[in-house]
Write a protein that binds this DNA or RNA. Structure first.
Lengths: 250, 250
DNA sequence: ACCTGAACACCGTTCAAGT
DNA sequence: ACCTGAACACCGTTCAAGT
């Protein structure tokens, strides 16, 4: 949590100021906490500097002294949420299973804060929590025997792959996280049904494959699809690790 | 190109109007073309309804009659660009290689219009070009022998995986596409070098793995990483297709 | 059937001025 | 060292009114 011993990377969009203790109203920490609270409850579109300031009982201009810009604030928000992820200690023979655990944990946190994937797009997370996170994931891959380059590339690819998945999963709705899983699942199923009906209604002459597969588009179990994804990824990476980049016979 | 025979999906954010032929100033097609031109030359941030209208010699309000909303416009832009992708006819024994070709082509188009990945986030592409695209990709997977569900799931996962990769690749800079590949590559390498130096400077006691891998972070050949990704993905999917979801021995 | 100007309700950020 | 009000230069969208 304490970012005292790690110097900020040179490209961080933050003003660096000395101390920051103060009585109550605002501090960098309080601003980040309020931003996350607002994001969790009202979604990404609700976060504006003006609205956030209002929530804190100040004017928008006051925030700029602490966080530099909205972009700088989002850097801090992202790092804070990355800090929620729990990564196990390396257990070498189980490295593939642990890699899947990392992926599942990443997805879990992303679904808890559905806006976070979109914040992370185009941002290279290099805050203190992100660094600790990377350290622990890379330790698992190295312990599993992956050579240096493959460990780093595999790590980067795992993150982008999981993000690519969750961005679709959280994509359409900009609503807050909420415990209304039922609503969400129902709405998702309804959308899938609409897609199926629409696909089924296409002219079969031009869309023979699609119309034949229409029913499969109604089946949209994200959990199952995610399991498939990390199976594919972990298997593929492990095969690569043993030099087996051979094409599987068909 | 002609979207006449395919009815629009019910959730499309567009006003449906009768004919649209007119002399010159604006039409749906002209608006979309102007939007893509603006996006290509000045990037996603430059596209506003007001700015686009100015480019077309009208006021912003005039655009709304044709495209309904900015969101509707982005739907059209996305479908137009998806239409640029070329998908080969199925060649069953080569399905894995063809799958990789699809991935490479998708990435190629995405890099040609670096903003398009971010437009596609949270959007389920269901325009006429997207449908034709899906039809052709799914035909390849079915011809390769994948069962219906695995074909659909594999297709969806491939798209999200490639998008996850390219969103990182195009992420930080919101600049236009441009032929200044050299600049881009140079800037990218410089950023990678900064990351390496920063990582190398971390306390080795807390970051033993990261500091040891610092040099690998400077190596950021996106092409090589992408090839690794689609190898992993295609291999993993093929193994799954033959029921081989077994964990690779370590 | 199409286009328009003007307005509504917002944005992020800056900056001189305060304490 | 921190906070403020007011301003600058923007947004997407609506709507009554025009032709």
């Amino acid at each position: 949590m304490a970012d005292t011993e790690i110097p900020a990377p040179p490209w961080q969009r933050l003003p660096d100021r000395g101390s920051r203790r103060r009585r109550e109203p605002i501090s960098r920490e309080a601003i980040v906490a309020a931003a996350i609270k607002l994001l969790d409850s009202e979604g990404l579109a609700a976060l504006s500097m003006r609205r956030l300031a209002e929530e804190l009982g100040t004017g928008a201009a006051s925030l700029y002294w602490h966080v530099g810009s909205k972009d700088g604030l989002l850097d801090l928000v992202l790092d804070q949420i990355i800090g929620e992820g729990r990564i196990p200690d390396p257990d070498p023979p189980r490295w593939q299973e642990q890699l899947k655990e990392v992926a599942r944990e990443h997805r879990r946190v992303s679904l808890l804060h559905p806006y976070v994937v979109r914040i992370s797009l185009g941002r290279i997370p290099m805050g203190p929590n992100a660094l600790r996170y990377s350290e622990r994931v890379l330790a698992i891959l190295r312990a599993g025997g992956l050579p240096p380059r493959l460990a780093v590339q595999g790590y980067l690819l795992l993150m982008s792959t999981v993000n690519g998945f969750t961005v679709d999963e959280t994509g359409v709705d900009d609503e807050p996280a909420g415990d209304h899983r039922a609503d969400d699942a129902a709405g998702r199923q309804e959308a899938a049904n609409m897609a199926r009906d629409y696909i089924a209604s296409l002219p079969a002459g031009s869309f023979p494959t699609m119309t034949g597969l229409a029913d499969e588009f109604a089946f949209s179990d994200a959990d199952e699809r995610f399991d498939l994804l990390i199976d594919i990824f972990a298997d593929g990476l492990a095969r690569h690790a043993q030099g087996g980049s051979t094409t599987v016979r068909s």
